[in-house]
Design a binder for these strands. Structure first.
Length: 482
RNA sequence: GCCCCCAUCGUCUAGUGGCCCAGGACGCCGCCCUUUCAAGGCGGUAACGGGGAUUCGAACUCCCCUGGGGGCACCA
């Protein structure tokens, strides 16, 4: 597959292991992956675990599992920043020696208090530079007094920082509005900016694609690279944010945002990848259903959009349905079996699952939704019940008792074949001069499937078996009669 | 408070000065099909935030306003 020479693209996905993989991060990972694959470059996974207080080993594992589930394979890594602390310390030392950084003895609480005060007074927050020009004597005194020491990067006082964003074009800011920032904590651990700049340089990263929420921090990282004397060029591209219904950055309160949630709800990785790719990017020809290979072939940063995108669960559902319906019977049967066993235990047999897949495929939207429609089949007879709202709507059916009785009689001794069942039920209704339509059928659906709408009734009855079907018809009948 | 980014149907978007009284997709509405509900087919509703400027001509260029979002941590 790869006899074409690489053009040297090296990108990375660098999540902090402080929680599950957020769908917004996954989208960023996907764009990096697509970019790398499109250019036959290298996709690197790097774990930014410099925040010891929030990082957890289990998340490192979880993020990798989820990336694999999504099908985003990486070529290098995972590199853990926790394994590379000496490099960051060395870099900090160089910055200190060159006076590009300085030791700061303000505590986080003090800085925060001063920021709050500034804000309250109508001034801008941001480090006020108190420790910027300390003398050696000052530092000795502060250290002797037992004050903790962090290291801050000295940002330029004047001038403009500017870079060409891969998706937005020229982006610039006045240095005077950018405050000095901490690069090494008082416990000597490196902060994101430092580790990030050092690693991108040492790992030979060529392009960085990340969320727009990191746009402002780019100037600071670029300044760090410059101060560190990094040679190679690094190009940044900032992707539009994913937002919820209120247009705010997508978060937990908007619904499912953890990738595991999508997996648990029966979404397909291919469908999710396809949908995510269309959030902030569109192919030239407007086609929407795209395979991974097509995405890779067509992906182009020039076609990344600039404004925030609303994560539309409805469209995701539609797209998932498209993929489900395109699956072959065996593939869908396997998914149904897994989901049914997750819901109803190992007792669920393969044949039933396969049957559900076969009769439900053309109506499927999600695997979970499909299996829910088949609950009537998997639930034990003592556990079967008719959904209250369905019963309510169906209980008023004209001549309900007669219908149930008639159907019961026709199904009592006929051959057990879908087509025969079909004919018998129609005959049962014909006896009453009724037809199989939306006025009569919902009652039967409710009686047999526990809901007024669901999998095709004749197949459902066939799968359920005569005995169980008759019992349910009886139960519904006596309930209606009461 | 300051800084940055963004601005086409409800939503995702196409559109880079005339092909646009703006195209596609999801959703929604209607019809058809039909054993329910879906799925499917057909049709419909619906948008260039406002104001200037440039131009023979602006959704597309520039400016202002407005609106939305993001950032300003010893989080990333």
């Amino acid at each position: 597959m790869n006899d074409t020479p690489r053009d040297g693209v090296r990108v990375r996905f660098a999540p902090a292991p402080t929680g599950y993989l957020h769908v917004g991060s996954a989208r960023a990972a996907l764009f990096n992956w697509l970019f790398a694959r499109h250019h036959r470059g290298t996709f690197i996974l790097r774990i930014e675990d410099t925040d010891a207080a929030r990082s957890r080993g289990e998340w490192i594992v979880g993020i990798q599992d989820t990336l694999r589930w999504l099908g985003l394979d990486w070529d290098e890594g995972p590199y853990l920043q926790g394994d590379r602390l000496d490099r960051y310390a060395a870099a900090a030392g160089r910055l200190l020696a060159a006076s590009r950084a300085y030791e700061c003895y303000c505590t986080p609480d003090e800085v925060k208090a001063r920021n709050d005060a500034a804000l309250a007074a109508g001034r801008s927050p941001g480090y006020d530079g108190r420790c910027r020009d300390l003398t050696d004597a000052d530092r000795e005194a502060l250290a002797a007094a037992g004050r903790p020491r962090s290291i801050r990067f000295r940002t330029p006082d004047t001038g403009v920082s500017s870079f060409t964003d891969l998706v937005r074009g020229e982006v610039s800011v006045e240095w005077s509005t950018v405050a000095d920032f901490v690069i090494v904590r008082s416990d000597d651990s490196p902060v994101f900016f430092l580790a990030n700049a050092v690693d991108d340089a040492e790992m030979g990263i060529t392009h960085v694609l990340r969320g727009e929420d990191l746009l402002d921090s780019t100037h600071r990282v670029l300044a760090l690279r410059e101060a560190l004397g990094v040679e190679g060029r690094l190009q940044y591209g900032h992707l539009p944010l994913l937002v919820g219904a209120d247009r705010a950055k997508l978060s937990k309160r908007h619904g499912a945002v953890a990738l595991e949630d999508f997996r648990d709800r029966g979404y397909l990785p291919d469908a999710l990848v396809n949908y995510l790719a269309l959030l902030g990017w569109a192919p030239e020809d407007g086609q929407e259903i795209l395979s991974r290979d097509q995405l890779i072939a067509m992906f182009d940063l020039d076609r990344v959009t600039h404004s925030a995108a609303f994560f539309d669960y409805q469209k995701l559902d539609w797209m998932t349905g498209e993929y489900l319906r395109a699956l072959c019977e065996e593939e869908l049967a396997a998914l149904v079996l897994d989901e049914a066993r997750a819901r109803w235990g190992e007792a669920v047999d393969e044949a039933s699952a396969a049957a559900v897949a076969r009769i439900g495929q053309e109506r499927a939207t999600t695997v979970v939704g499909l299996v829910e429609q088949a609950d009537f089949l998997f639930v034990g007879d003592d556990g079967f019940e008719i959904a209250p709202d369905s019963w309510e709507q169906v209980a008023a059916t004209d001549r309900g008792v007669e219908i149930l009785d008639s159907v019961r009689a026709h199904l009592g001794a006929c051959a057990w074949d879908v087509e025969v069942i079909n004919a018998e039920i129609r005959a049962a209704l014909a006896d009453l001069e009724l037809k199989a339509n939306k006025r009569t059928m919902p009652l039967l659906y409710a009686a047999v499937e526990g809901r007024r709408a669901g999998l095709p009734l004749f197949d459902a009855v066939h799968l359920l078996g005569r005995e169980r079907t008759l019992a349910r018809l009886d139960a519904a009948c006596s309930r209606l009669d009461a």
